[in-house]
Amino acid sequence: MDIRPAEPADGPAIRDVARRSLQASYSLGPQAINSAIEEWYDEQRLAETLADEDRLLLVVERDEQVVSFSESVLSAEDTGTLLWIHVDPAHRGEGLASTLFDATRTHLEDRGAAHLRGRVLEDNVEGNTFYTERGFAHVGTEQVEIDGRTYVENIYSEAEQQGREPIDDESNRTVYVDHDAHERGSIAPFHVVFTDEEDDDKYGYFCSNCKTLANAMDSMGRIECDNCGNVRRPLRWDAAYL
């Protein structure tokens, strides 16, 4: 077994493994899966991912065949986010996911990540169990749209919990900045802001660069702080959300 960074020539194998994995683990229809594969891993997007210093694609080869891969990103100043671990169903039960997880963590740490987070759709029971068995805490959710349907994505973190900090918005309403849930910004992380100290009703984002609230999000999931120009771009979905 060989674990290495992905190359452009791995594109067909990556798309094939992703398709088989999505079919086996998610309640997505064939059209949604095909749309997702084309959007995330077509030749152009794959080339952009491989050229992006903040992104990481690792593949597992067995007998010169790609049978698994992980996709991750440096999503905040010191945080790596694992977006996907895909294993061909024909090779599940062989410990590939655990081995690839460890290798991905090492690569992210080498790039400066001190903390690790993971994202997985709520209906992937095995994926959610994978993180909880490794001591990750569920720190939030996000709604994502795939082929016109809305899905819940769970967010896990092994970073030390810091809780929610109350602040007042422009109308003197108290909202809560979650220091455990953040997204990578072009200058500094954006922390998720909630309307309540305990509930998951999202209010917006907090720019950690200039310490101001940034609520406006466009159709691409892109946020730009009007005060300092810090920008948050979506990690996975584009303007059409497939």
Rank of each mutant, 00 (worst) to 15 (best):
V231T: 15
R184C: 07
G95W: 05
R134L: 10
G135N: 13
E198R: 11
V193C: 03
P166V: 08
E183T: 06
I167D: 01
A13Y: 04
L96D: 00
N154Y: 14
Q143F: 11
N124Y: 05
V144C: 00
H138Q: 14
A114V: 10
D63G: 04
E39Q: 11
H91W: 12
E142T: 11
R134P: 10
R92V: 06
C225T: 07
M217H: 00
V87C: 11
A181V: 15
L56E: 02
R45P: 01
I146L: 15
T79R: 10
V17N: 00
G80L: 04
R232C: 08
Q162Y: 09
N227S: 12
S27L: 13
V193Q: 02
M217P: 00
R222V: 12
Q143H: 14
R4K: 11
G204P: 03
A13T: 04
K211P: 01
F136K: 01
R232T: 01
L58I: 11
P8W: 05
T195H: 11
Q44Y: 06
Y241G: 07
V120H: 01
A216N: 10
S186P: 11
V60K: 00
A97C: 06
G140Y: 05
R222M: 11
H182Y: 14
H182R: 15
V120K: 00
W237Q: 13
D168W: 01
D10V: 02
Y176V: 05
A24I: 06
N215P: 01
A9P: 02
C207I: 04
V192T: 14
E77G: 11
P166E: 10
L116H: 04
I3N: 03
G140H: 04
V152E: 14
L96Q: 00
D218Y: 09
R117M: 12
E77W: 10
V144L: 13
Q23D: 09
L235S: 10
E48I: 04
N172E: 14
A114T: 13
Y205D: 00
D196S: 14
A240E: 14
A240T: 13
N230K: 10
A13H: 03
S208Q: 02
D168L: 15
E64T: 09
I3A: 07
H191N: 15
D42H: 12
D42A: 08
W40I: 02
R4C: 08
S25V: 05
D199L: 11
E126A: 15
E142W: 03
D178Q: 09
D201R: 12
Y241D: 12
E224S: 13
C210I: 08
I37C: 05
L74E: 04
A137P: 01
G229L: 06
V120T: 09
D200M: 12
V144Q: 12
I37S: 02
E145A: 13
R45T: 08
W237V: 08
D196L: 06
I155M: 08
A239E: 15
R15L: 05
E198C: 03
P30C: 08
A76N: 02
D52G: 06
D16G: 03
A181N: 13
H182S: 14
S98I: 10
D10N: 07
